[in-house]
Amino acid sequence: MQGDFYQLLKEQGYVLGMSGQAGVGQALTTATTILAFKYRDGVLVAGDRRATAGNMVMYDRTDKVLEIDRHSVMAIAGVPATAYEMVRILEHSFKYYRRTQLQELSFEGKLRALSKLLKENVPAALAGTGAVVPIFAGYDAEQESAKIYFYDILGAEFEGVEYAVSGSGSPTIRGILHYVNTWGEQPLSAMSEEQAAVQALRLLTSAAEFDSATGGVNREAGLYPVVKLITPNGVTAMADPHLRSLFESNVSKGS
């Protein structure tokens, strides 16, 4: 198939994921809360920054909302080693396609590329050593709209028409999102950039309250969630000082 970077890697002997024995009793680095929802100007994608292995907090500065290209983002939940590898493959695949075929890969093509990687990773996912449950969001230039998709570990893709969540903290915020979107002052899709960012901070703070594997805001260390915005102009990350200001004025109980 022309312009297929993953095929090129496989021809050179590359194998994704670690298949084989189930990882019984092994504490793999995992757990997370990631979310994406449509707001007035596009899609907001956010994630906490904690990586855990069993009961241990491995790292508190993880970036789980990764830019694949100028118009798409993959938020990762699951085993980071496999998830980061998938992100690197996708990043190279999209670039390779654009550079060889002299045109952008379609949005559907990008979705399918991730689905294929997840399918290839099924043995590792079922063995318990490499399950990844991502959210893919991006701007579809042909349809002129921002879109959200979420996946299961087998590679099935589902469109999140208004929002999508994943990770161990997601059950908590899924209900909140439904409530806010249905009976809130305004639906998520009518929110401004600032309102959407405040909503994301509140949701992730709620997830951290009930899920020990989700990291909350750590003001002393200056650690805030990663929040990225996808609009027709591309992907932008919200800067920490801006998030701090929004958190202090709209989320913190002391405000």
């Binding site: 970077f5 090129l8 890697l9 050179q12 493959i89 190279h92 670039k95 390779y96 550079r99 060889t100």
Partner: peptide, 13 residues
């Protein structure tokens, strides 16, 4: 061009 692209992307990955 394809040879360059293949080499560059495999190396970059």
């Amino acid at each position: 061009r394809f040879t360059l692209l293949e080499m560059a992307h495999v190396e970059g990955f």
